[in-house]
Amino acid sequence: MDLPRKLAGEALGTALLLAVVIGSGIMAERLAGGNVALALLANTLATVGGLYILIEVFGPISGAHFNPAVSAVMAWRGELPKAALLPYVVAQLVGAMLGAWLAHAMFDLPILQFSAKVRTGTGQWIAEAVATAGLLLVILRAPAGRAAPMVASFIGAAYWFTASTSFANPAAAFGRMFSDSFAGIAPASAPGFVLSQLVGAAVGLAIHNALEPRLHPVGHPNIIGASGDGEPATK
């Protein structure tokens, strides 16, 4: 399949993923009556369901990366042409920003905004590294045809066992800077998240390589994705 169609798939898939994460966060916060745990649960369930569907839909088109860290690992492994890495990342970042704007439009919020929600600290950086390492390990070790439910399930679990609620995705961190909502992250906090995510991706790849290889069969698409969100109790 030609590169423009793959890039369109990455941009559209990432946009819809961010619309799911941010939109469900807005709805959850409005309906939860101040109960952050209930809002996070609703945000989690919506993201798990949306992520699973998006991976299934866009996997055969672009691989459903939706995540620059994932694309970088796939390029390193030779499963994505290195010349396609930068276009993939650009498509994912643009899609993430558009997804945030789409969520705002659906809820009659100002389209252009920046988050004031500070998310920082050693615990959250470690959590992002752990979440991203786990995500890459699941992607690389998943049996053929089972990546979509496994990735979605891992992200759902990581919402709750990580202090950062598992962004695990530089594009997600970028897109959420443009939303001053439940799912947002302050621009000043994003670099720490992105650096932790890239470190986590490298750790996940190293762990995979240290284990017995389990390669995808020829012709099996790299069906992968990422991102979770919410308001952790540690914030």
Rank of each mutant, 00 (worst) to 15 (best):
P4L: 01
T14V: 02
M150V: 01
H65V: 03
E128Q: 09
I53R: 07
D108K: 11
P87E: 00
N43G: 11
A129S: 14
N222Q: 12
V36M: 09
M1C: 08
N222R: 08
I53A: 15
L211S: 03
R141H: 12
T120Q: 14
Y159C: 14
L136S: 01
E56C: 11
L3R: 11
R146H: 08
I53Y: 12
A226Q: 09
Q197K: 04
A116I: 13
H216D: 13
D229L: 13
F174V: 04
A72K: 00
A15G: 13
S181G: 14
L85F: 02
E56F: 02
A83G: 14
G9Q: 03
P110V: 04
V130M: 14
G34I: 03
Q92M: 05
A233I: 06
A144C: 05
W76N: 03
M106N: 07
T234M: 09
G192C: 08
K82V: 10
V138N: 02
I139R: 01
I223H: 13
P143W: 00
A129C: 11
L31M: 14
A84H: 02
I55A: 03
P4G: 01
G59E: 02
L211V: 01
P60D: 10
A171L: 05
G99E: 02
L31F: 12
L198G: 05
R5Y: 08
Q197D: 05
R214G: 04
F193W: 11
W160D: 05
R119H: 11
S71T: 07
R5K: 10
T120L: 11
L135G: 03
